[in-house]
Design a protein around this nucleic acid. Structure first.
Lengths: 147, 147
DNA sequence: TCCAACTTTAGAACTATTCCAAATACCACC
DNA sequence: GGTGGTATTTGGAATAGTTCTAAAGTTGGA
């Protein structure tokens, strides 16, 4: 089962209804390796659903988060929430200049999560490991711009 | 040099001026193990500085962040930014019910950070490792409330 | 002490996100 | 296949965190 189907199944399992808008949002989340914001999703899908409302995007994202199918990553320096459809433990790397976020596989992150579960009395529901800095491209631009 | 002095020194080093308001904000950040929001700082210091403006708090926090003396942790489920004066690598644990954040020392996090630096082309400027869940207290309340 | 530059202040402005009520669409059931 | 109850969509208003602005007040080097 691919990621798109996983997301839809998660919705159905929770008794949520499948609408064309939700399908499109799930497809976009599943097939892109971006970590889009609600507004980016909205702008992208406006061509396909000219009448779609931002509220619908927020609604669907909220449902997916509450179901545990996607993660809220938080801001990448742009004060808007980015979402990640990959719920497997991994590292996110955000560029504070172009505000793009990439994934980074990690050997250590599994151990980290187990450490947290073991050493705290919390019931862990999720987590986000986000490092930020300048991506190679923006580093280059910074140097060129600084001349 | 304690944390309070470190914060003030960071400001001075960057040519920033020391004002009573900034001293108070730095002291509060340094001496509390909370991870306060701008508003919490504002409310706390209002007794001492009745005329203080929220903008001053934001201004000072922005300066401290840009200087690298403190970290922006992001939201703890309450849609407001929490700040952390401890810039050493450590794990943060947020309770999504009471919105408090605690620190957790970690053996693995150093390795994680080195892994990121090694495996990415990014210039790393910082990071935040935040797990969220229910703190022991809120777990207990959830059970009692659920009866 | 003086002054230029930086800060503070108060309030307006901005913007992401949530809320609302009416219209619409999904889907379980017949 | 229809039908109805109910979740969802929509668009606009409302909310709230954060930023901006201009005037007044401070800081700290000379």
């Amino acid at each position: 089962m691919n990621l798109y189907e996983t997301l839809l199944t998660a919705l159905k399992t929770q008794g949520k209804r499948i609408t064309p808008q939700r399908e499109a949002i799930c497809r976009l989340l599943a097939e892109s390796d971006e970590h889009p914001t609600a507004r980016q999703i909205y702008e992208t899908l406006k061509a396909q659903f000219p009448s779609m409302s931002l509220a619908t995007v927020y609604n669907t994202l909220d449902v997916l988060v509450s179901v545990g199918a996607i993660n809220r990553l938080g801001s990448a320096g742009d004060d808007t929430v980015h979402y990640d459809a990959d719920t497997n433990p991994h590292i996110n790397l955000a560029c504070i200049k172009c505000h793009r976020i990439i994934d980074l596989p990690s050997e250590h992150i599994q151990a980290l999560q187990e450490e947290v579960a073991r050493n705290s009395q919390y019931r862990i529901l999720g987590g986000r490991v986000l490092y930020y800095g300048l991506c190679p491209e923006c580093q280059r631009e910074a140097v060129e711009g600084g001349r």
